[in-house]
């Protein structure tokens, strides 16, 4: 099985906080999966485990058939972190091209320029992060994640600080970029709308420690963002979320 496979994957932080309780999950390659769950349930931790930034306490992850470390060495992974973490001394543009340098890929100014245009930051190329708004920083971080042509894209609330309208537009403009490349994408989001519009599948997690409480396919008709399929799926997700929250209490 290709894609991303979690086998009994769990994480307990030092100090005894269990963030992810052992999970068995497969994300097939080339598809986009949205991860939804209450704040603090362990979504970021799961992404960090898959990226190999955190060692699992139990279990194992395979990314496209390899360990995360091997996959990283081939520069196959990109992450847009929840916190944009742009380097403050580099201009926005250099922050984005930095990804290609780190990935040891040849510079590609045309691609970088196109990405900057797509995230709507044209004209801010030479501006340093301190002079960008929170949402602009997030968009730059998103462009940086896409700049290195990754095979696996991990997006941790990439549009958390962006207004609803821009968010929809970014979703429309950016998602073809990774979908057409056959990138395996995981998208953590708190917006059910966004999850439905951007992904092929939605995995809903329980409050901490994260367990899967629902695993839903997104029919193509729902992705358009309106209509009965969309609304029924949205209702389903919200029901599951509130039910699992109530259970936890």
């Amino acid at each position: 099985m290709q894609g991303i496979t979690c086998i009994g994957l769990g994480k307990t932080y030092r100090g005894g906080i269990e963030a992810v309780s052992p999970l068995d999950l497969n994300f097939s390659s080339g598809r986009t999966t949205a991860l939804i769950g209450p704040s603090g349930c362990g979504k970021s931790t799961l992404l960090r485990l898959i990226a190999g930034l955190e060692e699992p306490s139990v279990g194992d992850v395979r990314v496209l058939g390899q360990s995360p470390a091997e996959q990283r060495r081939r520069a196959g992974i990109s992450v847009a972190f929840q916190d944009p973490s742009l380097l403050p001394w580099l201009t926005m543009q250099s922050n984005i091209s930095l990804a290609r340098k780190l990935a040891r890929k040849p510079p590609d100014p045309a691609r970088v320029a196109r990405l900057i245009g797509l995230v709507g930051l044209g004209g801010f190329e030479k501006v340093r992060p301190a002079a960008l708004s929170g949402g602009m920083r997030q968009r730059a971080a998103m462009a940086r994640a896409l700049a290195s042509d990754p095979q696996v894209l991990l997006l941790d609330e990439p549009f958390g600080a962006v207004d609803e309208l821009t968010r929809r537009q970014l979703a429309r403009d950016l998602s073809p970029l990774w979908k057409s490349q056959g990138t395996t994408t995981l998208l953590v989001t708190h917006s059910v709308d966004e999850a439905i519009m951007l992904s092929d599948r939605i995995v809903v997690f329980s409050p901490r420690p994260a367990r899967v409480v629902a695993d839903l396919e997104v029919p193509y008709a729902a992705e358009l963002g309106d209509g009965p399929e969309f609304r029924s799926l949205k209702d389903k997700v919200l029901t599951v979320l509130s039910a699992s929250a109530a259970m936890a209490k």
């Binding site: 990283r72 060495r73 992450v79």
Partner: peptide, 11 residues
Amino acid sequence: AWLDLVHVYGR
């Protein structure tokens, strides 16, 4: 977080 960025690319 800045170091994570470097590590993501296997560096």
